[in-house]
Simulated assay, not measured.
Amino acid sequence: MPSIRHEAPLELLRHNPLLAAALLVGTGIQLPVEATAAVSDSNLTTCNPPEFRADAVTLLRGIDGSRLAVITESQSAAPKPRKRRAWPAYVAVAQSQHNCDAVLVVIAASRATARACRRTIHTGHPGFSLAPIVIGPHNTPDPTNPAFASVAPELTVLAALTHALDLTEDTNRRMVLDKLATLDRETRTTYTRFVQHAATNAARKALEELMASPTYRDDFVDGLLEQGRAEGEARSLLRVLTARGFAVPDHLRTHILSSADTAQLEAWMDKAVVADSLDAIFDN
């Protein structure tokens, strides 16, 4: 089952695809001019097996018509040899599917993971080697940089996830809450959960105490209570599905557990009690 540590960076990309462009600033990659961004199909399978499914693919489009496909992989540990060997194929297939250049960005959760991911992948063909672009604790873009204003909340959460941001510092905790307070309630609740998951026990406790202070209480406390209710509803729903004999796939389990919408979870629960298939429950 995919962990929150793995899924959180990808959720940030799905919510704000321009994050893919921000991660490439300073890498030497030529970005499309005044690019817009859209999440693309992450299935990079060709007509023949094997299947190649990247964690995320974002297509950047410039006002001049230029395009760039950005493949993003989330790594909470060193990649296995089979995964590393697939990465050059991801790039080759993406540039073929989208008829434009393609690059690979790996988000690493620790310095050790970043070092492992940076290793050049040699394919055996002369001149055809892939050096992944790795974003980790050493080089996560600064979320306070005005140039990244459009993705500041996402970069802030990403900096917490990669431990580029020291949450034991009160100044950093306040900066995180200030950025999250600008978001709608559902997104704020989801992002807060990601930050809490990334923090040490001491930092998490200090963060929660700060959220309960007069400065932030109105923005965060109700959301945290709602988050707790949503987590309870999600786990109850999964228990009902298991009891009724449904085999819940990993992607659906992750979707259920990450939902902060209690009304939606309750609606799924009502259907789960009587439905004869997963499609009947989750196809709205």
Results as ranks from 00 to 15, higher is better:
residue 113 T to I: 07
residue 110 S to H: 03
residue 175 M to C: 05
residue 122 H to G: 12
residue 137 P to N: 10
residue 158 L to C: 05
residue 184 D to W: 06
residue 161 L to G: 05
residue 131 A to G: 02
residue 136 G to A: 05
residue 139 N to G: 00
residue 140 T to V: 14
residue 130 L to R: 03
residue 186 E to K: 11
residue 159 A to C: 13
residue 137 P to M: 11
residue 146 P to R: 01
residue 186 E to C: 08
residue 110 S to E: 06
residue 147 A to Y: 11
residue 173 R to K: 04
residue 163 H to D: 14
residue 114 A to H: 04
residue 120 T to H: 01
residue 115 R to W: 08
residue 158 L to M: 09
residue 168 T to V: 03
residue 124 G to E: 12
residue 174 R to H: 15
residue 157 V to F: 04
residue 152 A to Q: 14
residue 143 P to Y: 08
residue 143 P to L: 02
residue 171 T to I: 14
residue 114 A to T: 08
residue 135 I to S: 02
residue 157 V to S: 03
residue 146 P to G: 01
residue 115 R to S: 13
residue 178 D to E: 14
residue 130 L to C: 02
residue 143 P to T: 04
residue 180 L to C: 08
residue 155 L to R: 03
residue 166 D to S: 12
residue 134 V to Y: 00
residue 145 N to V: 02
residue 166 D to I: 06
residue 173 R to P: 01
residue 169 E to C: 08
residue 125 H to S: 09
residue 130 L to V: 08
residue 123 T to F: 07
residue 159 A to R: 10
residue 108 A to C: 01
residue 133 I to S: 00
residue 187 T to M: 13
residue 155 L to E: 11
residue 147 A to F: 12
residue 173 R to G: 02
residue 157 V to Q: 05
residue 118 R to K: 12
residue 140 T to Y: 03
residue 167 L to C: 01
residue 129 S to I: 02
residue 121 I to V: 15
residue 133 I to D: 01
residue 175 M to P: 01
residue 170 D to K: 12
residue 136 G to R: 00
residue 118 R to H: 11
residue 130 L to G: 01
residue 180 L to P: 03
residue 177 L to F: 07
residue 173 R to T: 07
residue 124 G to K: 10
residue 145 N to Y: 04
residue 151 V to E: 07
residue 184 D to R: 14
residue 132 P to R: 10
residue 187 T to C: 06
residue 172 N to C: 06
residue 152 A to L: 03
residue 155 L to A: 06
residue 153 P to A: 10
residue 164 A to D: 14
residue 166 D to Q: 11
residue 114 A to E: 15
residue 120 T to E: 15
residue 153 P to N: 14
residue 114 A to K: 05
residue 121 I to Y: 09
residue 179 K to Q: 15
residue 119 R to S: 06
residue 150 S to G: 05
residue 174 R to K: 12
residue 132 P to L: 09
residue 115 R to N: 12
residue 140 T to G: 02
residue 122 H to V: 15
residue 166 D to G: 09
residue 125 H to F: 13
residue 112 A to Q: 14
residue 138 H to V: 12
residue 179 K to L: 10
residue 125 H to K: 07
residue 172 N to R: 07
residue 163 H to L: 12
residue 156 T to F: 04
residue 110 S to N: 04
residue 121 I to T: 06
residue 165 L to H: 02
residue 183 L to G: 03
residue 175 M to V: 06
residue 146 P to F: 04
